[in-house]
Computed example of a mutant assay.
Amino acid sequence: MSDATDPALAPAPPRADCVADSAGGVTFDIAVVDAAEPVLVLRRRGGSGGPADEARLPLTPAGEGHMRAVLPGTVQLAEGRWDMYLDGRAVQPGIRDLRALVDRVPDGSDGVCVRVPYPTADGRLAVRSWVRRPHAEAGDIVLGDGACTVEGTLYGVRAEPGAMAEARLGGTVHRVPADGAEGAFTFTVPYDALAEPPLAAEQLWQLWLRPGAGAEPVRISRVLDDVWDRKNVFVYPVHQGEGYKAAPCYTTDNDLCVRLTA
């Protein structure tokens, strides 16, 4: 006779299909499972466990054998990674329909809110949330001789005379002028300006945009599509300088940087 703790007798883990919409909402469909409380729970990874770090989505019947929960775009979801649970059990990813997020152009009058459902490295379902008010969305990156030119779009703020781009490393800041018109921006970062010798270790220079003289800087990122982690997806050719190598890159949070290596 099999022991009651035999994994073969354990209930199958819950699995959810999901559909994202262009307004920031996500709908989750899950096969009916035995649950003491029919509620999908989202918990923010690394949070303090308070009310702001948990979202509870009631499950309601949605056709034979299925239940549905909806995360409306109007519900506040702090920036971060949100893991999903049902009755304390981690939810596994099913079919993810993210087509509405591709080439998304939001209203963006005060910035952007983005939610991307994704599979974690250990096979769970999570939601990556970005809340950027205002927001600088990176677009094309043009590689030149010893420099990169970044083009993008501003949401929630416009570029004004005196706009500057900033490359930041700790307390060190290098500034270059930025041009902007009709919500767009562009600037060029010369690598030599960042590669002050001696370069002994890898440096990751964060790129920010200051929309005007005296304006608060805005982190430059790329979040308006279905890619939740660009770090190993968007890889750019490396420039060989004098005593260093340089290339633009994205972090796991989709923030834009320039990486220098010796």
Results as ranks from 00 to 15, higher is better:
Ser129Gly: 13
Met84Tyr: 09
Pro93Val: 07
Asp122Met: 12
Pro38Ala: 04
Tyr118Trp: 08
Val39His: 03
Pro93Met: 09
Gly88Lys: 13
Arg96Gly: 01
Gly50Asp: 11
Val112Pro: 07
Ala90Leu: 04
Val75Asp: 06
Arg115Ile: 01
Pro61Ile: 04
Ala52Met: 14
Arg45Phe: 08
Asp53Met: 03
Tyr85Pro: 02
Gln76Gly: 06
Val91Asn: 02
Val39Tyr: 04
Gly50Gln: 00
His135Tyr: 14
Leu101Asn: 09
Val102Leu: 11
Val131Trp: 08
Ala121Gln: 09
Arg81Met: 12
Ala136Gly: 12
His135Leu: 07
Gly73Phe: 00
Ala121Pro: 00
Arg45Tyr: 10
Tyr118Leu: 11
Arg81Ile: 13
Leu59Phe: 05
Val127Leu: 08
Ile95Trp: 07
Ala121Tyr: 03
Leu71Asp: 01
Val131Phe: 01
Leu40Glu: 02
Glu54Pro: 00
Gly73Met: 13
Pro61Ala: 13
Leu77His: 03
Ala52Gly: 05
Arg133Gly: 00
Pro51Phe: 06
Pro38Phe: 08
Gly88Asn: 07
Ser129Asp: 01
Tyr118Ala: 06
Gly108Pro: 05
Gly80Gln: 06
His66Glu: 12
Ala126Ile: 04
Glu54Asp: 05
Leu57Asp: 06
Arg128Leu: 05
Ala69Leu: 06
Asp122Ser: 14
Thr74Pro: 04
Pro61Met: 10
Leu42Glu: 01
Ala100Asp: 08
Arg43Gln: 14
Val75Cys: 05
Pro117Val: 03
Gly139Leu: 00
Leu57Lys: 12
Gly111Ser: 13
Ala136Ile: 02
Arg68Trp: 03
Gly73Lys: 02
Gly88Ser: 12
Arg89Glu: 08
Ser109Pro: 00
Asp87Pro: 14
Gln92Ala: 15
Gly65Leu: 04
Pro93Trp: 10
Ala138Leu: 08
Leu71Glu: 07
Gly123Phe: 10
Pro51Gln: 07
Ala62Asn: 14
Cys113Ile: 07
Val91Thr: 11
Ala78Gln: 14
Arg104Gln: 07
Pro38Met: 01
Arg81Trp: 08
Gly47Ser: 08
Asp110Cys: 11
Arg128Gly: 12
Gly65Tyr: 02
Gln76Met: 10
Pro119Lys: 10
Pro106Asp: 11
Leu42Ser: 01
Ala138Ile: 09
Val70Tyr: 02
Val105His: 15
Arg99Lys: 15
Leu42Arg: 03
Arg124Val: 00
Pro72Glu: 08
Asp87Arg: 14
Arg56Lys: 15
Leu98Cys: 11
Gly123Trp: 04
Tyr85Ser: 14
Pro106Val: 09
Leu98Phe: 11
Val70Cys: 12
Val102Gln: 13
Arg104Lys: 03
Arg132Trp: 00
Val41Asn: 08
Asp110Arg: 15
Ser109Thr: 06
Arg43Cys: 10
Asp110Ile: 06
Ser109Phe: 03
Val75Thr: 12
Arg45Lys: 11
Arg104Asn: 15
Ala55Cys: 14
Ala62Phe: 05
Gln76His: 08
Pro93Ile: 05
